[in-house]
């Protein structure tokens, strides 16, 4: 994985594979610590040894590298990866922290593009994206709301995706999440 954005796409794909249709993502970037929390309503799998590369819930192969790689990325900078089951039918919560000033930290990459990629790939997924700044929550995207406003069922049109991308990029920049951050 080259960037934090790649990791984020990877874990969002996990949620999709767990049959989630609603994903809530929270970002915070404070004192160079980047925190990301992903909560979905998919079918929670067993979290025992989940960051072991030889533990996976899929049936086709016996390896699963997404979470072990994310764990290495976060812990390599002094951060952490934490997952918990929210109950049988309530989904999974995942939280990770990366110290972005650490020499081993990956650059952010373009986080706004992650969401347009997900919407393009799985148009049925609904997002709620929230940024935290000085203990205040601000919702920067709600796809259900956007769909109602635009009166469409899916957000796959290139013009809508560009709109979403620009919107997110602007809002993320406000809390200091910049694509180039960490690129030496």
């Amino acid at each position: 994985m080259r960037t934090i954005a790649d990791h984020l796409f990877d874990i969002l794909e996990n949620s999709v594979n767990a049959h989630a249709n609603k994903i809530m993502v929270t970002f915070s970037f404070c004192k160079n610590l980047f925190l990301c929390r992903v909560i979905d309503n998919g079918i929670a799998t067993s979290l025992e040894n989940i960051t072991d590369p030889f533990v996976t819930s899929r049936k086709t192969r016996k390896v699963g590298l997404g979470l072990p790689l994310l764990k290495a990325t976060t812990e390599g900078t002094g951060g952490y990866l934490k997952m918990s089951k929210l109950g049988k039918r309530a989904g999974t919560s995942l939280e990770f922290v990366v110290n972005m000033t650490h020499i081993d930290a990956r650059p952010f990459g373009d986080i706004s593009v992650v969401f347009t990629d997900v919407l393009r790939s799985w148009p049925g997924i609904d997002f709620e994206i929230i940024v935290l700044k000085s203990k205040e929550e601000k919702k920067i995207l709600d796809t259900i709301e956007l769909k109602e406003l635009l009166d469409v069922n899916i957000l796959q049109d290139i013009e809508i995706l560009n709109f979403v991308k620009e919107q997110l990029r602007k809002e993320l920049l406000k809390i200091g999440i910049n694509q180039q951050f960490g690129v030496s």
Binding site: M1, A5, D117
Partner: peptide
């Protein structure tokens, strides 16, 4: 193909 392997190899850039 956008599995973990594809993403790590840069498939998101390809898709975009």
């Amino acid at each position: 193909c956008l599995g973990t392997c594809g993403i790590a190899a840069g498939a998101r850039q390809t898709m975009n």
